[in-house]
Structures are given as structure tokens and as C-alpha cells.
Amino acid sequence: MKILSLIPIIAIGGLLLWAAQDFPKWGDVESPASKSPVSSHFIGKTGVDTEVPNMVTAVLADYRGFDTMFETVVVFIAGMAVLAILKGSTRGNSRRKDHEVEAEPDLIVTNTVRLIVPVIQIFAFYVLAHGHVSPGGGFQGGVLMGASFILIALSWDLEKAVSRFSIERCMIVAALGIVIYGGIGLLSMMLGGEFLDYAELERVLPVSREMARYHAMLGVEIGVGFTVTAIMFALYANLSSEGSLKQGL
């Protein structure tokens, strides 16, 4: 079996190597991907179009914002699918009876986490809100935020974390994230543009068209942050306890 599976791997690897001879040189300014007007539009016009200094965020949340909306939906789907499979399953109840540990949470660990968690959460907000200017954004901020809840679950136990952020609330927050993202897109469509044409938001915001795009990007990043935070934690809670939401790792 192992030898059989080597055959397609070698075939694909060989194919990829064969293709590489035709690649443009590394960092070549004449290569199609760097020379193409699409790239130069992103590089040259991002600041003009959107007032956003961070080109990556502009491409992600505005030029290709539709992709990002569905990436957020994919995160949401992942949470829903895990919930669908594990909810009400009996698999988690019967396991590891023999070596179940009934220990008190460790004093040093819990106190350290008590100190760290607020810092992580503030940093998460910073990463989320600063995505326009520096590396960061909704996905990264959301992951940090979700990690802070997972840290609570790891150092106390899952029940304590779930009592702070129940799975129902997770799903509501995750859905809310999609509503924020899609809602901004829909609003700009209602105001006369195309779906996700943030510039049209100037009619309701007291700013220029470019700044409207700037602010709308922050809005959609917040939506992404909501969904990612909630689904991060929901995935951890469900998977670590096989759906029972008790004990955890």
C-alpha cells in the first residue's frame, strides 16, 4: 500500500518540478504577476481608492471582499457542522471513566491566567482594529480572542469557560458576525451601489467615498472577528469533550 501511494506522489511531484522550469525568475519585475495591471492597480491605487495604508487588508476586505465574506461563512459552517455531528451524541459520556481526575485547578496556573487573559483580549482588540494600518485584522484578532477563552477552559475546566460563553451564545455571536459582514454589503447595495460597494456608504456616513470604504473595512473586520472568536471556542469546546461539554481536556 505504501509503495502504491508513492506512485501518485512521485508523479505529482515530478509534474510540479517539470512545470517549474517555465516559472518566471524569483522576484522578477517582468513576470506576468508583477507586471500585470491588476497588481499595479493594487500597489498604486489602494491608497487613492480606499485611504487604507495596508494594501493586504484592502485587497482582502475590499477588492476581494466577497471571497472574505465566504471565508467567514466557511468558518461559520465548520462550527455548525461540528455542532451538527456532535450535538446530542452519546460518544462523549462513556469515555475515560477510569483515569478521570478530580483535581482542583492549580493555584499558580489559574492566577497567571487571571492576569494574562485581559491582556490577551485587549491585544485582540488592538490587532482587530489596527488591521488597516499594520498586519492584523479580523481573523487574527478573532483567533486571539478565541484563544483567551480556550485558555480559561484549559486552566480551570470546560464548565467554567462554557458558563462564561455558552455554545448557544457562541452560535448567536457567530451568526451575528455574518450578519454584520453581509449587512454592510447589503446596505451598500440598498444605497444604490453593487453588493459590498462600500463607497456608497458615504450617504449615511459623514465622510468621503474613500473614507467610507476605510470605515466599512473596519466594520467587516469586526464581523469576521465575531465569527472567528465564537467558532474557535465552539470548536474547542465540542471537540475536546466530544460534544458533551463536560470536563474537556
Binding site: G65, F66, G193, E194, F195, L196, D197, Y198, E200
Partner: peptide, 8 residues
């Protein structure tokens, strides 16, 4: 029908 999302 061509429709550019984001009005680009």
C-alpha cells in the same frame, strides 16, 4: 449579465 462585486 456581468456584475462586479464591490463596484470595481
Amino acid at each position: 449579465v456581468s456584475y462586479i462585486l464591490g463596484g470595481w
